[in-house]
Simulated assay, not measured.
Amino acid sequence: MPERSVPVLVYDGDCAFCTSSVNFLTRYVRPRCTVTPWQFADLDALGTTRERAGHEVLWISPLGAVHGGAQAVAKLLLSAGGGWAWLGGLLTLPPVRWIAHGVYRAVAANRTRLPGGSPACALPTDRRPGPGPGPGVRSAP
C-alpha cells in the first residue's frame, strides 16, 4: 500500500446528510486531509472495502491505518488543531469513546430520518444508485 502525505477522509457521497456534515466540517473545522466520497475512491488502494465505507465514515492515515465511525471523527478533529484537537482527543478516551461510538451508531442508523437524509442512505451499499468505485481519490469541492 503506497504511503500518502496526508490522511484521507472517506464518506458516503450518496447520503445527503453525510455530504452536508462533511461540507460543514471541511468549511468550519478545516481538517488537514483529502476528502472523498467512497463512490469515487480507490478503496483497495486505501486498504478498505466498499462494505466498510458504506457502513461508516473512514479516516485513513498516511501510513494506511483505517479508523471508522466516531474514531474517524476524533482523528478528523485532532488533525484540525486548536480547540478541535482537544475535543478529538477527548473522543479517544474511555468512557467518552464508548459514548461517542453509541451516538455515532445511533446517528448512522437513523440518517435517513435526519435533515438532508435521503432514501439512498437506507439501501445496502451494493444496491445504491450512482457510480461505483473510481480509479483514484479526489478532493471534494
Rank of each mutant, 00 (worst) to 15 (best):
V8T: 15
G102A: 13
T36I: 00
P141I: 01
C33R: 06
T112F: 09
P2L: 10
P141R: 04
P62Q: 09
V66H: 12
V10M: 00
F24E: 01
A53Y: 04
L77V: 02
V107R: 06
P95V: 14
R138V: 12
A120E: 15
L63T: 15
T19Q: 10
G116I: 09
L25H: 03
A45K: 03
D42V: 01
G13D: 03
R27W: 09
R113V: 04
T26P: 00
Q39D: 02
L63V: 13
W98N: 08
L46A: 06
L90P: 00
V137F: 11
T36E: 00
T19I: 01
T36S: 10
C33T: 05
G47N: 06
K75M: 14
R52P: 00
S61W: 06
N23V: 01
Y28N: 06
K75N: 06
V6D: 03
N23L: 05
N110M: 11
L93W: 07
R111D: 11
Y28I: 05
H55W: 07
G117H: 11
V29E: 08
P95C: 13
R50A: 09
V137Q: 14
S20M: 12
C18L: 15
V57W: 10
V6E: 14
A100F: 02
E3R: 08
A120I: 04
D44N: 03
T125G: 02
G132C: 00
V8Q: 06
G54M: 13
A122E: 12
L123H: 11
T26V: 04
T112E: 11
H101I: 00
P135N: 12
K75L: 05
W38Q: 02
A74E: 10
C33I: 03
A53R: 10
P133A: 04
T125M: 08
